[in-house]
Nucleic acid binder design. Structure first.
Lengths: 148, 148
DNA sequence: TATAATTAGATTGTGCACAACTTAATTGCC
DNA sequence: GGCAATTAAGTTGTGCACAATCTAATTATA
């Protein structure tokens, strides 16, 4: 079972292309906000919880400092966020929204609606798909923990 | 509905992290074959259909020449494939397996088994998940075509 | 209380992923 | 047949994604 080497029968391939194609859908929607897809994810976290430290941010997005450091640098250049060193622990860096970064949230509110409109998907299906993806991740993590 | 801006409620985020985490699972499995994940996908296509041209390969994987050209260059350097210009149309480039690239298939046969073992997933669930991912792509493409 | 181990973040190097552009071959159309 | 439009690959530039390494701050412990 599942041992066929055919491209289309690999769940990895379906997941990989689905992710790429969905990201492609976001590009024109995010362009007016001056954000890439990954930058948008960082902003989503900040709108939810301002003044988060980079460590937590990386854990939320499963991104390491090698990815996050230059990404955050670009968000600072655009002027949406700023870095503040934590006073209690000088190693930590807190990320906070600038007024322009906060203001952007209003425009971003429309993004999920546009996307689900484009996907043309009903609530029940949407939820089922979300659960599937979360389950795949749970299985991956269960394996990771088994290995430790 | 679906208008919450919370990270975890975005299907894009779940798809993006699931794909990244699954790819991460493949890395140690593919390392002994001397392949990255994307290179593995190219090899899958070649084992299925040798002597394919780059255009078709790119369509199969939804990758453009900007990604594929350097990727193929690396596969040639490793010695798994070679490029041959098509005689009937000098623009086309055909990709074919070297003996070492063909031989690799035997080792690769074990990859899907290892992965489904790690995912610890039964056949029915696996198939259901595949169908969901294919459906997501179909919806994305349906939108793309509507826009043309 | 020195110093070893750990931790947070940054840097470097490799490999995608894709847009925009270039080059060369082919096809269409007159 | 001649020339514009199209097509296939390749190149360049930007931005992830991640491993490996480095630096500086903190914590643990001998």
């Amino acid at each position: 079972m599942k041992s066929s080497l055919t491209l289309e029968h690999q769940i990895c391939f379906q997941l990989y292309t689905a992710s790429k194609e969905l990201t492609r859908l976001y590009r024109p929607i995010l362009a007016p906000l001056n954000l890439t897809y990954s930058q948008y994810l960082v902003m989503l976290v900040l709108w939810e919880e301002d003044n988060i430290d980079l460590k937590q941010l990386g854990e939320r997005l499963t991104l390491d400092s090698g990815t996050l450091s230059p990404l955050v640098k670009r968000l600072i250049q655009i002027g949406y966020v700023e870095k503040v060193r934590a006073t209690d622990d000088e190693r930590r860096v807190l990320l906070s929204l600038t007024p322009s970064g906060s203001a952007l949230r209003k425009q971003a509110e429309e993004v999920p609606l546009k996307v689900s409109g484009m996907l043309n998907i009903d609530e029940a299906t949407y939820v089922a798909y979300m659960e599937m993806l979360i389950d795949i991740k749970a299985r991956l993590r269960a394996f990771g923990e088994r290995e430790e």
